[in-house]
Amino acid sequence: MPYWPCRARAAKDAALMHRFANPARFLKIARPLTGWLFWSGLVLLLAGCTCGLFVTPADYLQGQTVRILYIHVPAAWLGMAGWTGIAVSALMQLVWRHPLAAVAGRAIAAPGALFTAICLATGSIWGRPTWGTWWEWDGRMTSMLVLLFLYLGYIALANASARQGAGQGGVSNVTAIFGLVGAINIPIINRSVVWWNSLHQGPSITLRGSSIDMALLWPLGLTLLGFSLWFGAIVLMRMRAILAQNKVEARMQRLARG
């Protein structure tokens, strides 16, 4: 039954994917890329923060506190993008048995959790002077807190399964399934301010435009790109650490066997 629409294309895709599945090939690209991503990301995010703190004007309503936007929004984006990355790696691990996917999922979890925590912390600090409260159980805040708990659960599961030697330093299939199931929270976070009455305002930037004036908007592009590049560098560092640990463990086992 020719249910697969384009066999040749699929085979080519698989070949392309498996070329990067080889850790040696991956490392050849990852080694120089780590430094580039890290330093360019750092320069961009520091430039964005500096401009956001000292160059842009204050908001008509909120005054100076609007400057928290330049770190709060990238943190929210990366917290959600991180889990999307975990879900995609989980799918690649479960379906294609891609050896690097399991390693990538485990590497993404820590910076993803960090940014989710930063998003909650900066949101709380922003909420006090604007809304008049540190914390409220509205849809956006609650679903973001759930994301943090999902990350913590994933990290605990991933560490436990890596210790048991599942998937060569990567995560077990159960952990991958957890990563896939948790992805349901991502559209809920995104839509929470539209579906439910919430204290958090609606989305400022949509496909149709932005309700943030250009005079205030531009440093956000710098910090979004900067934090994203930095995130990529951290993921590569953590993947390299896991791959090197695998090598050490394999070597030790061979030595022990004599």
Binding site: T65, T122, I125, W126
Partner: peptide, 23 residues
């Protein structure tokens, strides 16, 4: 207002620096 802004940036930069160093 600046107290809140500085607190938010400090939390962020400390967190990113710590994760950079550990990784």
């Amino acid at each position: 207002q600046w107290t809140f802004v500085i607190a938010a940036y400090a939390v962020t930069l400390l967190g990113t620096a710590a994760v950079s160093l550990i990784s």
